[in-house]
């Protein structure tokens, strides 16, 4: 019994430590600067005011950052589906020469972290005059090896009879991909979608490289613009902005914990 009490206490304490940054962020986001810079330590804000949140939206273009995040994530996700679902389908449900080779390439591609390809991709985009565009933010990610791999696993588990039946029913291969195959692997598709959106919503590296225009900043980059511009004096609104930026991921996670964990855990397969 005492063992159990110790265990529960330790786990709660640990969880609390994990949450400290979040709690501190929330606390600061409601405090005004007088309170923040006062030397007394007070966890709870004196009063709940949304001033910082209003400032975050009016003084900097937080809305713009969020919109950019949505555009980039959605653009990437749509293309990743368009490219990887048909490819994974063909790799499992069709027989053609070179199938093994292509799958071998996919596995090899899975081993290459994105950072490795950054320099040549940057050069190419610069040559094409595409730096500082949404295209530059989206194009490098359109073909996801991880997506192909994940969908291939999911399709391989389906009965080939289903696809033969669809062929006899008069569906074209393209129709089979979108009307039969994809709906049947919805859990895998959701897991992949969550993985992809979280990864690109949170990514800073590529945005830092191909954009210099604050109007194209995705949320993490936007936060940094904000922080650097205010040179540390506007902590309250900055914290409010971070709350807003992480909110979609956190809310999504709390609402669909199982799917989220599945999606991110599956991401471990990626190099």
């Amino acid at each position: 019994m005492t063992g159990r009490i110790i265990l529960v206490t330790a786990l709660i304490l640990g969880a609390f430590l994990m949450l400290v940054p979040f709690l501190w962020m929330l606390s600061l986001s409601f405090k005004d600067s007088a309170e923040i810079f006062s030397s007394t330590l007070d966890f709870f804000p004196a009063r709940l005011s949304l001033d910082n949140y209003i400032t975050a939206f009016t003084k900097v273009d937080l809305g713009r950052f969020l919109l950019n995040g949505v555009i980039v994530c959605a653009g990437i996700l749509v293309f990743q589906f368009l490219f990887s679902v048909p490819c994974a389908y063909a790799l499992t449900q069709r027989r053609f020469r070179g199938r093994q080779v292509i799958f071998g390439l996919v596995l090899a591609g899975l081993l290459v972290p994105f950072h490795v390809t950054a320099i040549p991709l940057f050069l190419a985009l610069a040559k094409l005059n595409l730096l500082d565009t949404y295209t530059a933010l989206i194009v490098p990610f359109v073909s996801s090896m991880f997506g192909i791999f994940l969908f291939r696993q999911a399709f391989a588990a389906l009965s080939p009879d289903l696809f033969d039946a669809a062929r006899l029913d008069g569906l074209s291969e393209t129709a089979i991909v979108w009307r039969i195959a994809l709906p049947l692997v919805l859990p895998a598709a959701t897991a992949f979608g969550i993985f992809s959106v979280v990864a690109h919503w949170n990514d800073l590296f590529w945005n830092l490289i191909v954009t210099s225009d604050p109007n194209l900043a995705t949320p993490p980059r936007g936060i940094l613009y904000f922080r650097d511009r205010e040179s540390g004096s506007d902590i309250g609104p900055l914290m409010a902005a971070t709350v807003i930026v992480i909110a979609p991921m956190i809310v999504g996670f709390l609402m669909a914990q199982r799917r989220f964990i599945q999606g991110l855990a599956a991401g471990g397969l990626k190099g």
């Binding site: 994990m18 949450l19 501190w24 949320p219 900055l238």
Partner: peptide
């Protein structure tokens, strides 16, 4: 315990 994994790392780094 999982919350830090889902949260945007850059934002949390600022925190």
């Amino acid at each position: 315990y999982f919350l830090p994994v889902a949260a945007t790392l850059v934002a949390m780094a600022v925190v």
